[in-house]
């Protein structure tokens, strides 16, 4: 188990603040966050490239905090892959074993075969395609049997087809060799596809850390919800135990959650909460939906009062002029 305890790192005006993370053995943990959130700084701190100001990095209870980077035994795949251009693919992959005086073993053969790079071993990295380079960089990091694999947006430069192939390869390898990994991405699909758990890092702070599905479906606060692409976030005041007055809508919404009368809340009305009704019924609102045709779905925008709602609908879906909201799909944010 990998534990980051109260990690603090100051880099000029930027700082990572009280980072707490637990990554179980065999778990792929995604760190999500906007540019400049401190994702790469966090990776550098874990790798031992940046000195942290306080906190601990523990693996199976052993303290790695002050250990030199070369002694940590972590695998790393950076965004630019950094394949050594003066070495062949084989020399690149075996670099980690060679500097420790070890010879290539069956594990290397197995990894090379699994990644489909056996035919590339004598070539120079410059002659490889983008996808082949990714495979080589990944295998180079894995061949030393790292206690923790760190990936810094390694697939960001690939097109979607190659990206999916790499996701599948990583998952295959992870299952077969029980790899524990911490990876950075700003690709939400990538995080959802690959990770068991995910954390959202914004302005140097972890805003939410939970199971990936839960993180995507139940963001805890406005920052996380907005980062995950949620719209329809409004402020309101509880007018009864199960009803809230949304200022922008100038209307009440029924909720499932038990509320404190008079208290202010921020609500997230998920797309799945929006239901187009065939006819007007109790609690429904009359709307004038505008439809924008996008590649694979239609974007629907409508207003209630001054509140603008956005939702996606598949192209076949019939739209009506009445909307109601499912209580279960209205979330309350911190």
């Amino acid at each position: 188990m990998v534990k980051l305890e109260n990690l603090n790192l100051k880099l000029g005006k930027f700082s990572l603040q009280n980072i707490n993370l637990t990554i179980k053995e065999g778990e792929l943990h995604a760190i999500l966050g906007p540019s400049g959130a401190g994702k790469s700084s966090l990776i550098n701190a874990v790798l031992g490239i940046s000195d942290i100001n306080s906190g601990k990095i523990l693996i199976e209870g052993k303290d790695y905090t002050k250990m030199a980077a070369q002694k940590r035994g972590f695998g790393y795949v950076p965004q630019n892959l950094a394949l050594f251009p003066h070495l062949s693919v084989k020399e690149n992959i075996l670099f980690g074993l060679k500097v420790k005086g070890k010879k290539p073993d069956a594990f290397f053969e197995k990894l090379a075969e699994k990644a489909g790079i056996k035919e590339l071993l004598d070539r120079k990295p410059q002659s490889l395609s983008g996808g082949q380079k990714q495979r080589v960089a990944l295998i180079r990091a894995l061949v030393v049997k790292p206690k923790l694999l760190l990936l810094d947006e390694p697939f960001s430069a690939l097109d979607i087809t190659l990206k999916r192939q790499m996701w599948e390869l990583l998952l295959d390898l992870q299952k077969e060799f029980n790899i524990t990994a911490l990876f950075i991405t700003h690709d939400l699909d990538e995080a959802r596809f690959l990770s068991n758990r995910a954390s959202v890092l914004i302005e140097g702070k972890i805003e939410q850390s939970s199971k990936t599905k839960e993180l995507f479906e139940k963001p805890k606060n406005v920052k996380v919800a907005r980062y995950l692409g949620y719209k329809n976030i409004f402020k309101g005041k509880a007018v009864s135990k199960n009803s809230i007055y949304i200022d922008e809508m100038q209307a009440n919404l029924e909720t499932k959650e038990s509320l404190d009368m008079g208290k202010s809340y921020t609500v997230l009305i998920k797309q799945s909460a929006i239901k187009f009704e065939k006819e007007e019924k109790e609690g429904s609102f009359k709307v004038e939906p505008k439809i924008f045709e996008l590649n694979s779905y239609n974007l629907i925008i409508f207003k209630i009062g001054s509140a603008t709602f956005e939702t996606a609908a598949d192209k076949q879906r019939e739209l009506t002029k009445f909307v109601s909201f499912k209580k279960d799909e209205i979330l309350f944010l911190n």
Binding site: L47, G48, I49, A68, A69, Q70, K71, R72, G73, F74, G75, Y76, P78, A82, F84, F95, G96, V99, K100, R140, A141, V144
Partner: peptide, 10 residues
């Protein structure tokens, strides 16, 4: 950085 993470001394 990569060389270090792969175990190379400075």
């Amino acid at each position: 950085t990569i060389a270090k993470t792969l175990g190379a001394s400075p």
